[in-house]
Amino acid sequence: MGVNCQSSALSPDHLLACIREAAHSLGFAHVGVADVDLASAEPGLLAWLAQGFHGEMAYMAAHGLRRARPAELVPGTVRVLTVRMDYLPAATPADWRARELRRLTEPGEAVISLYARGRDYHKVVRGRLQKLADTIAGWVGPFGHRVFTDSAPVLEAELAGRSGQGWRGKHTLVLSRTAGSTFFLGEIYIDFALPLTEPEQGHCGHCHACLDACPTGAITAPYRLDARRCISYLTIEHAGSIPEDLRPRMGNRIYGCDDCQLVCPWNKFARRNALPDFDERHGLGHAELLTLWQWSEEEFLRRTEGSPIRRIGHARWLRNLAVALGNALRVAAPAQVPAVRAALQQHLAHPDPIVREHVQWALRQREADDPAGGSARA
């Protein structure tokens, strides 16, 4: 039975119940409410930035401590509504983690992070958050607010943890006992008070599966991530040349990396979402490297329209694919080598110097005079 939200004077508790019901109808799985006092998170943020772990993501530092001070980022903010939206497609099989791990052992496969195979989550979450805000305005009248979803200097994980969405796992992602970590977060900064929701205690215990699984050692210690080594950062946020010592460790991952989530025991509880927005597009869940390598820039733009992948651009897409093809070339059966080499050579004269450099590196992974790959150089 639904909540009666037509009263002209809803109590704070009643209003929160109405908000939760409206959020659920919009595809959000959970709603929490956080206070704006994040002072205890400031030292950790400053230390992380001081170590340079944010790499080239200058926006992480650009707003200073305003990231940890919602009332300074959006003056008048009194509470932060947090939401969770699960992103596994409805048709995801029960053994999805085992399937994804198997794909990592197939060098010719092109592995794209699960969240990026459908529609751009920024558009999906932000649009539905704004609808939720409009619905709230229908109950309380015009109110000061701002909607966020991974789009501004917001301490999302901190706010999510404080509002009961879950706890910060050792891989630094938010974990839920009922939903694992395969979800997006969003926030609405609001200028009126709602009852705070209880935070959840951590439940990682002695498990260190995520640290052991990270291909590049980006999780340098529990709860500490050096983004400069993270494959998600390298394939998406990093615009330049990928460090050569990290390229072999990237394997066939061309956009993002799910390894720490695939091995996390809590993701046996990962939830599906009935929204079609996150359904796989263009076969990106089982694509092959050589197929994607042949996409022209025009085809890349057409096939990634409405996708988060599009924002990296065609040149960076080719850079990532070149690394994966180089890794595939290193271990390819002799009969497969000519096709991979011929494909790489198509872009030896690419106008982008970064693409050219990565193609040259890829070709060196299996020298022409060594078909067995015995003297390939990294």
Rank of each mutant, 00 (worst) to 15 (best):
P334R: 13
R310H: 12
A218F: 02
V340Q: 08
R119P: 00
H145I: 06
P351T: 07
E297Y: 09
A179G: 04
F53E: 00
H286D: 12
A94M: 06
L46H: 04
E158M: 14
W361Y: 12
L15S: 08
N267F: 07
F143S: 11
S307M: 02
R66P: 05
E244P: 08
R20F: 01
P338V: 03
L46V: 09
P353L: 09
S8M: 11
P353T: 11
T172F: 09
S11D: 13
H238E: 08
T149G: 03
F269I: 03
E42V: 15
V33P: 00
S232I: 10
G251K: 02
E357Q: 15
S25G: 12
R84M: 02
F143G: 04
E244A: 15
C18R: 06
K123R: 12
V140G: 03
R228M: 00
L155R: 12
R119T: 10
G55W: 06
K268A: 04
P199G: 14
E305H: 05
R253N: 07
R281N: 03
Y255M: 03
C264Y: 01
A98C: 10
L132P: 01
G55D: 00
M1G: 14
G240C: 10
A221G: 05
F148D: 01
Q51S: 08
L45W: 07
T77E: 03
R168Q: 15
P89W: 00
A116P: 12
A116C: 12
C204D: 11
R229M: 08
R249D: 10
A239W: 13
W139L: 11
Q130M: 09
E158W: 12
T197F: 00
I188D: 00
Q261F: 10
L318M: 14
I136E: 00
R99Q: 15
S25V: 02
R126E: 06
A160E: 08
H238G: 13
R168E: 10
L344H: 02
S296E: 10
L289A: 15
G374H: 14
G164R: 12
P93A: 08
G127E: 11
R228W: 02
Q336D: 15
L289F: 06
M85F: 05
S307Q: 06
A339G: 03
P107F: 07
L81A: 04
L129V: 02
A368R: 09
H145A: 02
A209D: 12
P248S: 11
Y87C: 04
